[in-house]
Design a protein around this nucleic acid. Structure first.
Length: 358
DNA sequence: AACTGTTTGCGCCATAGTCC
DNA sequence: GGACTATGGCGCAAACAGTT
C-alpha cells in the first residue's frame, strides 16, 4: 500500500521578491445601496479588506492539489477563493494556474435569432485578473510543488471581498478543509434534525463557514442517494471519474490512466465493454462505456460462451472477486479519508502559524 | 514540440416552484 | 415559513484543435 501523501518539509525559503502589497481597498465594486438581487458580488463592510499580492511563502507540497488546498486556506482568510483554471506540462515540468474564483468571463448563450443573452444575471464571474502560477520543481513521482508570486495586474482583484454567505465556492472550500463539517452534518441528518437546526449547530461549531439550509439539503440529497446505493449493494467504489482515478492512483501507485504515451490502444474498445458487463461499478482505468460497445461485446460474448454451468461458475467466481475488490476499496477509502483529515488539520495549523507571524 | 484556446461531460450547488 | 424537488449554472478536468 502506498503511503499517504505527506506535506513536504520546507526545503528553502522562496527566493522570489515579495510582491508589494497594493492598496487593500478593492477596486470599484457595486454601490453600497445595491441589493443582493442586483449583483451577486456584494460588498460586505464587515469583511476584512480584500488582499492583493502573493500568499506567504509556503513549504513544498507533493501534489498541486495539496498546494492548492494550502493556498485556498490562505485565500479564504483574505475573503476570496482560488480555483485551478489550468493544469499542463511546461518544458517537461508540470504547471498549474490558480485563479480567483471570479476570474472567468461569463459566456452568454446563443438565443433565438443568434442573439447573445444572459441566462442569469447572478453570475459570480467578474473577469478578475488575479492569478498564481504553480509549478513542480521535483519529479512527477516525487513532487515539489511551489508557486511564482504574482506581479502587476495579476496580483490584483477587480471585485470587493467575497462573503461565504453568498459565495458557494468559499463554503465548499471551508467544507473541504474541515471534513468534520460533513461528518457532523451526516450525523445530525441521521438523527433526523431539521436543516435549519443543523445550520444553527454547524454555525456554533464552525462560525466561519456560514453554511445555508440549501447546503444541508443538497448534502441530504447526496446522503440519501448514497444510502440508497449502499442498500442496493453498491458500496466502496468512488462515484466520479476524477475520484476514481485519484482513488486508483493511491490504491495502485499509478495514476489510473495510461502513463505511457506510446501505449498500444488497440485493445481499449474491448476493455471498455468488458468493464461494463463485468461490473457496474467503476474500476481502474475507467473509461466511459458507449451503448454500442456494450451491444457489440454482448454479441461477441454470446458466441464465445461455453456450457451454461461453466458460465454460471465463471460468473460466481467473478462476483466473489468483485466482492473482495469492493472490500479492499472500502478499507482503502477509509484510510484515504483519515489521511486527508490529517492533511487538512496540518494545513489549517500552518495557516494559523502564518497568520500569527503576520 | 510546446503552448494556448475551445469543447465536452460530470457532479456540485443555487434557485424557483410546489407542497405541507 | 420551512422542506422538498426539478432544473439549470458553474467548477473542473480531459480531449482535441489551433497557433507559435
Amino acid at each position: 500500500m502506498q503511503a499517504a501523501v505527506q506535506v513536504q518539509p520546507l526545503l528553502q525559503p522562496q527566493n522570489q521578491a515579495p510582491t508589494p502589497i497594493l492598496p487593500t481597498q478593492a477596486l470599484a465594486g457595486p454601490p453600497s445601496s445595491a441589493s443582493p438581487n442586483d449583483s451577486v458580488i456584494v460588498h460586505d463592510p464587515s469583511l476584512p479588506p480584500l488582499s492583493h499580492g502573493a500568499p506567504p511563502p509556503l513549504p513544498y507540497y507533493s501534489t498541486h492539489k495539496l498546494l492548492l488546498e494550502a493556498m485556498q486556506a490562505w485565500s479564504i482568510t483574505h475573503s476570496f477563493a482560488l480555483i485551478t483554471t489550468k493544469s499542463y506540462l511546461h518544458r517537461k515540468n508540470q504547471r498549474a494556474l490558480f485563479s480567483c474564483s471570479c476570474a472567468d468571463r461569463y459566456q452568454p448563450k446563443l438565443g433565438p435569432g443568434k442573439t447573445l443573452y444572459r441566462i442569469t444575471p447572478k453570475t459570480k464571474r467578474t473577469e478578475c485578473p488575479y492569478r498564481i502560477s504553480a509549478l513542480n520543481v521535483g519529479t512527477p513521482l516525487d513532487g515539489k510543488w511551489t508557486y511564482i508570486a504574482p506581479t502587476g495586474v495579476s496580483a490584483t482583484h477587480n471585485h470587493p471581498p467575497l462573503n461565504p454567505r453568498n459565495h458557494a465556492i468559499l463554503r465548499a472550500i471551508h467544507r473541504r478543509l474541515h471534513p468534520e463539517i460533513d461528518l457532523l452534518m451526516e450525523q445530525l441528518l441521521k438523527e433526523g434534525m431539521p436543516p435549519r437546526d443543523i445550520v444553527k449547530r454547524l454555525e456554533e461549531r464552525f462560525p466561519e463557514c456560514q453554511l445555508t439550509t440549501t447546503d444541508v439539503n443538497n448534502f441530504k440529497t447526496q446522503f440519501v442517494a448514497k444510502a440508497r446505493d449502499e442498500a442496493a449493494g453498491r458500496v466502496g467504489a468512488p462515484e466520479s471519474i476524477s475520484e476514481q482515478r485519484e482513488f486508483m492512483a493511491d490504491y495502485c501507485g499509478a495514476d489510473g490512466e495510461d502513463n505511457n504515451d506510446n501505449d498500444d490502444h488497440s485493445n481499449d474498445e474491448d476493455s471498455y465493454s468488458q468493464l461494463n458487463v463485468a461490473d457496474n461499478s467503476m474500476v481502474a482505468g475507467e473509461k466511459r462505456v458507449r451503448p454500442e460497445d456494450t451491444l457489440a461485446y454482448n454479441e461477441t460474448n454470446k458466441r464465445s460462451k461455453s456450457t451454461p454451468a461453466d458460465e454460471s461458475h465463471r460468473r460466481l467466481e467473478e462476483a466473489n472477486e468483485r466482492v473482495k475488490e469492493a472490500k479492499k476499496m472500502v478499507e482503502r477509502s477509509i484510510a484515504i479519508l483519515r489521511a486527508r483529515e490529517a492533511e487538512a488539520r496540518a494545513i489549517a495549523a500552518e495557516v494559523k502559524a502564518w497568520a500569527q507571524l503576520k
